[in-house]
Design a binder for these strands. Structure first.
Length: 106
DNA sequence: ATAGTGACTTTAC
DNA sequence: GGTAAAGCCACTA
């Protein structure tokens, strides 16, 4: 494995680890996750990674939302995300989550 | 190396 | 409270 390859893989691993570290019943924004992962402004990158891992049951991608707690997901995936969040005890209203109540505080 | 793209964020209207 | 534009990072072609 080449160094560069390992590096980009490490970034992904970092993001996944951060998302996995989000406690149940809590949600975090892309920027928040990116910052904790060591990529202060790579919120877009975080989204891209999560998109690739939607089929992965080991990653709680549904706990990651927009900066205002709004679900920035396209398609029917948003409904699944809201449903998953509700199943964890997160109150989802009109495609939105109350960050003041369920926001992740690291 | 250049250009285009994306589940973002912030500021302004 | 929506819509628009610019800025940001990393990836892919």
């Amino acid at each position: 494995m080449s160094p560069a390859e390992a590096l980009q893989d490490e970034r992904v691993q970092r993001v996944l680890a951060t998302v996995d570290s989000i406690p149940p019943g809590r949600v975090a924004s892309y920027g928040q996750v990116a910052e904790e992962a060591g990529l202060p402004r790579a919120a877009r990158f975080v989204g891209s990674v999560l998109k690739r891992f939607i089929n992965d049951d080991e990653v709680p991608w549904h706990r990651v939302l927009g900066s205002d707690g709004t679900i920035r997901v396209a398609g029917g995936t948003a409904r699944d995300q809201a449903q998953l969040l509700r199943a964890e005890g997160v109150e989802v209203r009109r495609g939105r989550v109350d960050l003041a109540e369920c926001g992740w505080c690291p």
